[in-house]
Simulated assay, not measured.
Amino acid sequence: MDCRSESATTGQGRFRVNANGKLLDVWLLIRCVSCDRTSKLTVHERTPVSAFNPAELEGYRVNDPELVASRLLDPLLARRSHFTLDWAGAWHLDVPSAVPDEVWPLQVEVIFEDPVPVRPERLIAQGLGLSRNEVRRRVKCGIPSRRPTSAGFTFTVLTGD
């Protein structure tokens, strides 16, 4: 980021492609939430045109929204470009208002529309209104609860007794 801020960014939904002979540079335009300045994230640098999949190249040309999203969600691009996305309020766990006694233990499947960096333990605690200690006691997950995830997961909730 030009402002050297650690703040989140939003996508403008546009790529900029520059040709230099048979080499291409591709940038994704982003906007800093703090200073509102637009910056370029290098997606490809001095890459031979022949190295691109034609569909990907067309996606860059037409500013394909799915391609923009996939690049914004790419953790390697974020790390290399020193930016973070603002995930505050980006997910929640939909929970029924009442669960009948006969369905315990309760098996829950979490599915994300897009890959997101959320710690399963934190999502479960917020969604079920439990403390983290209560989650550790009552919830059995197939993945380590302290590891951030970018894919869906399944967990089982035991009764509070």
Rank of each mutant, 00 (worst) to 15 (best):
P105A: 03
G89I: 06
V43F: 09
V118Q: 08
E102R: 13
T84G: 10
Q126S: 12
F15H: 02
F112H: 10
W27T: 04
H82Y: 13
N63S: 08
A88Q: 09
P96L: 14
R119D: 06
R31M: 05
R14V: 06
R137L: 08
P117C: 12
D25V: 02
V110C: 10
G59I: 05
W104L: 05
F15C: 07
L41C: 10
C32M: 03
S34M: 05
C35H: 02
G127K: 07
P100D: 08
Q12A: 03
S131M: 00
L67V: 12
C32D: 02
P117M: 14
P75N: 10
F15G: 01
W91Y: 15
R46A: 15
R61V: 06
L76D: 15
N20E: 15
D74Q: 06
V68H: 12
R46Q: 15
W27L: 02
T47L: 14
A78M: 08
A51Q: 14
V26T: 01
I124H: 00
R138E: 05
D64T: 02
L67N: 06
I111L: 11
P54Y: 00
S131D: 09
G11A: 15
L128R: 00
S50G: 09
D101T: 14
D94R: 12
L72T: 05
R122I: 06
A90G: 07
L123A: 10
A98K: 13
V17L: 14
S39D: 12
S97T: 11
H92Q: 09
G129V: 01
C141S: 13
A98D: 13
L130Y: 03
R122N: 11
G59S: 09
P120K: 05
L28Q: 15
C141W: 00
P144Y: 01
W87P: 06
G21A: 09
D25M: 00
P48V: 08
R136S: 11
P65G: 05
P65W: 15
S70M: 14
G127H: 03
K22A: 11
V95T: 13
V17N: 03
D25S: 11
F112W: 04
G11L: 07
V139L: 08
P120E: 01
E109P: 02
F83E: 02
E113F: 00
P75I: 09
S131V: 04
R61G: 04
R14H: 04
F83V: 09
W91D: 15
P105T: 00
V116F: 04
N18V: 12
L67S: 07
V110S: 04
